[in-house]
Design a protein around this nucleic acid. Structure first.
Lengths: 172, 172
DNA sequence: GTCAATGCAAACATTTTGCAACTCT
DNA sequence: AGAGTTGCAAAATGTTTGCATTGAC
């Protein structure tokens, strides 16, 4: 996962962000600064809701809408990246000064493992060229079982991980 | 995109589906059959809502919930695959008897281009092995500009495609 | 002072669920 | 007959938007 970074790096990111905003006539508000800092200190993949709770817990008064609006800007200016693990909410991670990576997701325990994206990026360029496509970015995740879960999970049972669970009924 | 397939293939898919259901004590209802057929005849990526409308237009009386419930089963039994282009709804495509492929998405015109997934699959296995991960599947999409849009889109403007659009205001 | 940003609540869009009626097997 | 299935409407999510107020420059 993205690593929490030194104050030094945070400061640089703040400068990038401030400039990005200034260049567009947008304002460097306290909220935006606080959100950027919270994001940079986060060493995990997070979701908007979680970020909101974390910030409130540490004493910031921010609205949910501001979180969403600010994340969008941070994504646009390249400090934050969206990652798509689940089919539900978008997850985010800060990427400022971090090596490009993609993720493996364990279907059983949900563990996330990062790996270097260099090979994938190389491959994407080749594929794109073959199709006269101009690649700008990619999304890549590998789904499967992490080492621990392979051990814990007898071969015969693994297939079930691929199957939809039937809805469990519950009565009032 | 997935291709509409011959009646022959549809029939085989129906058999697979029927068996899948029988094996689990589930029922092969008219609705499920109709949905399977509609899906197999679809040569595009589609969303749940669209499938619902299409089916109703061609005279089937199905509920939205049934569409969602059935798609889930079809995904589980491997006839249908979820694809994730947008950040909103899930898209689906039938994969029965089709070659594994992934997608390139043009950021400008939304065009979807498919490409063979073999290389990606090979790479994913290597990467997984490096991390003692047991890969079962992957999600891969390349984002960028298709040939036509590269031409239509002067270099200087391309960067803007990466930026968030500011919200346009509209009044009553 | 001006224009953008904020928080809130309401609006939205997509997907899921509870339930009574119904239908495969 | 009985367990699973359906459609509907309501609920649940996750995200966006309208608006009056506040705040940065």
């Amino acid at each position: 996962m993205a690593r929490a970074v030194s104050d030094n790096v945070i400061e640089t990111a703040e400068n990038v962000f401030r400039e990005y905003l200034r260049d567009r006539g947008l304002k460097y508000t306290e909220e935006r600064q606080a959100i950027l800092r919270a994001v940079m200190k986060n060493d995990e993949h997070f979701e908007a809701e979680q970020l909101l709770l974390d910030m409130r817990q540490s004493g910031h008064r921010v609205g949910k809408a501001t979180i969403y609006r600010s994340l969008k800007i941070l994504v646009a200016c390249g400090i934050v990246k969206e990652v798509h693990f689940s089919n539900k909410q978008v997850h985010y991670e800060h990427t400022y000064g971090q090596d490009p990576h993609d993720h493996m997701v364990c279907r059983r325990c949900g563990r996330i493992i990062e790996f270097d994206a260099a090979e994938v990026t190389r491959l994407r360029t080749l594929i794109a060229a073959d199709h006269r496509f101009h690649a700008l970015s990619h999304r890549f995740s590998i789904m499967g079982l992490c080492e621990a879960c392979v051990r814990a999970c007898p071969v015969g049972l693994r297939a079930n991980l691929l199957l939809a669970r039937r809805g469990k009924k519950k009565k009032g």
